[in-house]
């Protein structure tokens, strides 16, 4: 995720200063790490140098001066370009769970690898239960529902892989033994 593009997206709704942008970011993206003020100001300076934002006013309210920024036409074009660029699907080639199963088979046997997989599965399901419970609270804000959807979908992918692995573990054990 690009911090600059997120800030451009927030500015597309209207001009804001860094302090408000940081708060808007943390509200909109609760699953993301809170944005540090230093990171916001550094990104705004970079966006300014690139011509994507411009300072339009300076506000002073009981404290230091706050520069208010607005998105430029070039910034809007850049934002559109970023949104419309399809992300390359992330392929989990290096699967730490698969590595562990293979190592378990190297040092012991199918029964042991199965036990390890079942315990991992139980742990994943516990996590999924927590997200599911959180989601059934009707007061959960919609962006947090979406964040939980994402977590559940990824846990579900791992769980489906583990179900297949449980059915294939004997065959893998035989392949490793030969």
């Amino acid at each position: 995720m690009s911090t600059g593009h997120v800030l451009l997206g927030l500015l597309s709704r209207g001009q804001q200063h860094g302090y408000d942008l940081k708060r808007a970011h943390d509200d909109r993206f609760p699953a993301a790490k809170p944005m540090a003020y230093g990171q916001v100001y550094a990104s705004l300076e970079r966006l300014h140098r690139q011509g994507f934002v411009e300072p339009v006013a300076v506000q002073r309210v009981d404290g230091p001066d706050r520069t208010v920024y607005a998105i430029t036409a070039t910034g809007r074009a850049e934002l559109t370009d970023w949104i419309e660029t399809v992300e390359t699907p992330f392929v989990h080639v290096a699967n730490p769970l698969a590595t562990k199963v293979t190592v378990a088979l190297l040092v012991t046997d199918t029964a042991y690898a199965t036990t390890c997989l079942e315990r991992q599965r139980a742990s994943h399901l516990d996590a999924m239960r927590r997200y599911t419970r959180a989601k059934t609270d009707p007061s959960l804000p919609i962006h947090e529902v979406l964040a939980a959807d994402y977590a559940i979908a990824h846990l579900d992918a791992d769980l489906q892989w583990m179900e297949s692995a449980l059915q294939r573990v004997a065959a893998l054990g035989e392949a490793i033994a030969t």
Partner: peptide, 13 residues
Amino acid sequence: DARVSAYGDREIR
């Protein structure tokens, strides 16, 4: 379906 199972308090496998 693990997604359905996750609505339960616990799982019997």
